[in-house]
Design a binder for these strands. Structure first.
Length: 245
RNA sequence: ACUAGGAUCCAUUCUC
């Protein structure tokens, strides 16, 4: 099972849905039954293509074999549902898991917050943050990244800065994703000074810029017609051995 | 500790 599940995971991650199906039928024909991990992998793969009926089918098959979703599968489903824009169903599943006595962890809460923020439900996102606090689940790096991203996209750069400070105060070190998000925020509000400062802070902390960092920077600079700076960035990127793909 | 599965950043296409 482990071998098959691992293969399936790789196939899905490379967008190879058809071969995934072959693997599933092959394992079944060899009398190897999928387990919870296999089903979760399947659900995640199927969610990418937004096919809810297929997900239903998987859940049905599980039930008929006496298997029920666990924490990880619920979280996977929640993410998938938000991805296809089915907020109500995501909420329903979140409720269902709790009523089954499965307690959401940081990952689940972060997925909920992210989903609500992206679907424009700021109040609901906030209430999840409260729920999380009252259940004594602490936000982690991912949670902060999601929050910062959401604040920037709702036009609240000041609040984003505040949260950025809060995370540091609470001993959570921002990573390259945090910085990319912050840089992108500053640039989209034309806050050049702020962008500069944050880039300095990033390098002072020894955090290496990623390909995304360069994409963010060049994208905004090009839009502003600052081609000489773009040129500098590209040279710098080559020196760092980053392929500008 | 890691040890098959879950959450976070980005551009180019199409439309305006």
């Amino acid at each position: 099972v482990v071998t098959y599940t691992t293969m399936l995971d790789c196939l899905y991650k490379n967008g190879n849905k058809e071969e995934g199906k072959d693997i599933i039928s092959e394992m079944k024909s060899r009398g190897i039954q999928p387990n919870l991990v296999t089903y979760t992998t399947m659900v995640r793969g199927v969610c990418e293509s937004g096919n809810m009926e297929e997900v239903e089918g998987i859940l049905y098959e599980m039930k008929s074999r006496g298997l029920y979703p666990d924490l990880v599968l619920y979280t996977t489903m929640i993410r998938g549902l938000f991805q296809i824009g089915n907020t109500e169903e995501a909420e329903r599943i979140f409720f269902e898991m709790k009523s089954r006595g499965i307690f959401p962890d940081v990952v689940t809460y972060t997925a909920m917050i992210n989903g609500f923020l992206r679907s424009g439900n700021k109040e609901k996102a906030t209430s999840i943050v409260c729920e999380m606090e009252s259940n004594e689940v602490s936000p982690n790096l991912f949670t902060y990244n999601v929050l910062i991203h959401g604040l920037i996209h709702t036009g609240n750069m000041e609040k984003a800065k505040a949260i950025f400070c809060e995370m540091k105060r609470r001993g959570i070190s921002p990573d390259v994703v945090t910085f990319n998000t912050m840089i992108s925020g500053f640039l989209s509000f034309d806050l050049w000074e702020g962008a500069k400062e944050i880039v300095c802070e990033m390098s002072a902390l020894g955090i290496q810029p990623s390909v995304v960092t360069f994409i963010v920077l060049t994208g905004k600079l090009i839009r502003k017609g600052r081609f000489s700076q773009v040129d500098q960035l590209l040279r710098f990127m080559m020196e760092k051995d980053e392929s500008p793909d």
